[in-house]
Structure formats: structure tokens, C-alpha cells
Amino acid sequence: MIPLALAAAGVIAIPILATVARTPWGQLPELLSSPAAMQAMGLSLRTAVLATVLCVVLGAPLGFALAAWTSRWQRVVRAVVLAPLVLPPVVGGLALLYAFGRQGLLGGWLSSMGIDIAFSTTAVVLAQTFVAMPFMVLATESAVRSRSPHHESIASTLGAGRSRIFWAVTVPAVAPALATGMVLSFARALGEFGATLTFAGSMEGVTRTLPLEIYLQRESDAAAAVALAMVLLAVAIVVVALAYRPLMRSAR
């Protein structure tokens, strides 16, 4: 068992260590402050934050709804909603094009109203929301489902109506799980590549997010690519540390 566990840790740790070893630490400030890098990081931060807001505002209610819904169609709906978790992102990007592209299901109608989504910053946010939303839905639904409704029952005997019970009892109880879902959604949105490239393209300052910039720089300026990769790596490790802390706490 122990050699296998060490091998597993190695499969993950060795590439990370290799990236750290390859990073030109001395030039890091210079590489990260280049206009292209700054632009990509700024765009990534803006779009990922917006996508996270959308995930929380839309995904959390969907998670609550799935937890409360008892119909046999619930499983079908959940399977569809969670599909982006396992869908290759490039397929997600194509699907978004078929929906919101100029020739798409809704795109034609949106276009006639003067709204063009594909290959814009909006498309980046939409692609990120598409792939990140399931994390929020899943975190919310499983947290609500694993709770006994005992406190909600008691709250109702104390005279509280449904909305007071929801905000004062249910939401605080599932807040750690919501926070975890939010952090994971943000990380997934920040790292989004395939769906963004397919649905939003790679236009500097408009749709070229950090992962796209890394992919582009990797051949022309390897040092710049690895410097940006280091940023994403650091964010990923911080995110995981943040996301799993509340889970551990609530499990105790």
C-alpha cells in the first residue's frame, strides 16, 4: 500500500515540483508585469469573479431546488446539469456556440436584438459559468440533502415562516458548503481553457485569459509561460486549502 500511495503522490507532486524548478524566479516580477501578462491576468480575474457571482446566484438556488425536488425527473435534470463536470471543455464550447453563436438556437434571435455573445468577453464569462456551475450546484445540493430537517421543524413551531427559516436556519447551516462550492467554482472558472477557446476565441484584451495566454506563449516565450503557470499553480493550491477547510470543520 505504502509504495502505491507514494507513487500516487509522486504522479501529482513531481510535475508541480518540476514547474517550480523551471520557474525563473529572478525574472518573475518583470515577466508578470509585461503588458500581455497584466492584460491576461486582469481579464481572467474579472471574468472569473463575474462567473463565480453567476454560479452562486444561479447555482445555489438550483442546488436547493434539486435537493427539495422529489420527482423521478430530478435525476435526469441533475444528470444534465452536472454534465459539464465530465464533459470535455471543447465539447462544452461547441455546445455554447450551437446555443449562443450567431447561427445558434438562441443566437440568431439575440443577434436580431443587437446582442452578439460569441467571441466577446461575455462569451468568456458564459463559458466559465457553464463549466463551473456544477461545482456550486453539487456542493449546495449535497449539503442540503445531508441535513435532517429537524431545525427547520423546530423553527416553524417557534412561529417562523418559510423565508425566515430559510435565511436564519438553513443558509447558515449550509454556509460552509456554499463557501466551498464558491471557491471551487472560482478556481474552475479561472482555469477554463477549452470552452473559452472554442466559444470565445483568443483575442488579446477581450477573450485571451490567463490559460490561453500561457498556451500561446509556451512556444514563443517559454519563460513568460512558466511564470504565468506559476501564478495559476499558486492560486490552485491556495484555493484547495481554503475550500477543504470548512468541509473538514463541518465534518468534525
Binding site: 429537524h150 431545525h151 421543524s153 423546530i154 423553527a155 416553524s156 413551531t157 417557534l158 412561529g159 417562523a160 415562516g161 436564519a168 436556519v169 447558515p172 447551516a173 454556509a175
Partner: peptide, 21 residues
């Protein structure tokens, strides 16, 4: 009648207090 409108309060053997408050 909804529990909330009955004005009958219940204390059980379980942990009744809301942990976040």
C-alpha cells in the same frame, strides 16, 4: 394549520438549538 401559525412550541430530546446562532 401551519406549525408556524399554531403557537405551540416543541422541545425534543435532540439538539434543538440552532448551532449558527
Amino acid at each position: 394549520i401551519d406549525a408556524a401559525a399554531r403557537r405551540i412550541t416543541l422541545v425534543t430530546q435532540k439538539d434543538d438549538l440552532f448551532p449558527s446562532l
